[in-house]
């Protein structure tokens, strides 16, 4: 198998509180013969804090990374963290549409970003490089009822990201169905979990994430599937606040989509970092994978 080489930006969370996300992305990439090359000497994207306080800072921090990636000769950049992905894509959009700002930011970072990078979120990465290899590599069928949770930053703002349908996205569901899961239709697919307030305003996080966990649980989902470290830490770590808001204890686990793929590929649970979760992931009894699962490819562009 020819090895595919892709640029990779893990981001801060994936090196700290969400390291299992990084572990699972790396694990499935390795299993399927993809090499992820980190941007040399990358820095934090600035997240919510930067754009809340200063516009130029919020563009310069991602721009430095983009410029470094370009310097390193990378063409595609996989950005698993939805928040980083959003900041990167927004920065690219702003710089490419505002020449004055582009020049200014180039000056600030002391580098020149030309805009030749293709930025991929984890689902785009899966769609483009993983999904075709699944049929030949799946060992277990992920025969669970799951609720795919997209959150805000993967799908909005649609004009810039241009990814999937804003209100009823389907790409994660398609991937999960391919693994053999039954992905449910539910109400909180794209509602915000309160990410920006994960530390500073935990009551709001309890309420917002609480509604999400409750609706998924209420509709019989056995796992929540996410593709964003913010979503994951809110839905997983903030369970005390969530349970307090709902007035009951809910045990539905939260898995990264890469972990779900990893499980289906038969990768060890600990390599995928499942032991790091606060809500114990009890899912096991998977059926051996028998036959290819045909999933209807949905038209996922917003038709307006």
């Amino acid at each position: 198998m020819q090895k595919i080489k892709l640029g990779y930006y893990p981001g801060c969370s994936l090196e700290g509180s969400s390291r299992e996300y990084n572990e699972s992305v790396q694990a499935i990439a390795e299993k399927l013969g993809i090499e992820l090359v980190s941007i040399p000497d990358w820095n934090c994207c600035g997240a919510t804090a930067a754009h809340n306080l200063n516009k130029e800072l919020s563009l310069s921090l991602p721009a430095r990374n983009l410029a470094l990636a370009e310097e390193a000769g990378l063409k595609e950049l996989v950005v698993p963290c939805a928040a980083c992905y959003s900041r990167f894509t927004t920065t690219q959009h702003e710089l490419m549409h505002d020449e004055t700002m582009h020049q200014k930011v180039n000056g600030i970072i002391g580098k020149e970003y030309k805009g030749n990078l293709r930025i991929l979120n984890v689902i785009q990465f899966i769609e483009e490089f993983i999904i075709d290899k699944l049929d030949d590599n799946i060992k277990f069928e992920f025969n669970k009822k799951v609720a795919c949770y997209y959150g805000c930053l993967l799908v909005r703002p649609n004009k810039i990201l241009n990814f999937d349908r804003t209100e009823d996205p389907q790409t994660m569901d398609v991937v999960m169905k391919k693994l053999g899961a039954d992905s449910i239709d539910w109400a909180y697919k794209t509602e915000c979990c309160g990410a920006g307030f994960s530390v500073s305003f935990t009551e709001a996080v309890g309420r917002l994430s609480g509604k999400i966990v409750e609706d998924a649980d209420h509709r019989g989902a056995e796992a929540l599937i996410v593709a964003c470290p913010m979503c994951h830490s809110n839905l997983d770590m903030r369970r005390p606040e969530i349970d307090k808001y709902n007035g009951k204890k809910l045990n539905i686990p939260v898995l990264y989509i890469t972990q779900a793929i990893g499980l289906a590929l038969g990768i060890d649970r600990n390599i995928l970092g499942l032991q790091r979760h606060f809500v114990t992931v009890k899912l096991n009894d998977f059926k051996p994978f028998a036959k290819k699962i045909e999933v209807e490819n949905l038209q996922i562009t917003e038709e307006i």
Binding site: R165, E167, D168, D185
Partner: peptide, 10 residues
């Protein structure tokens, strides 16, 4: 069926 937030007619 044209309003995504009203369920695309589902």
């Amino acid at each position: 069926d044209f309003f995504p937030e009203y369920g695309y007619g589902k």
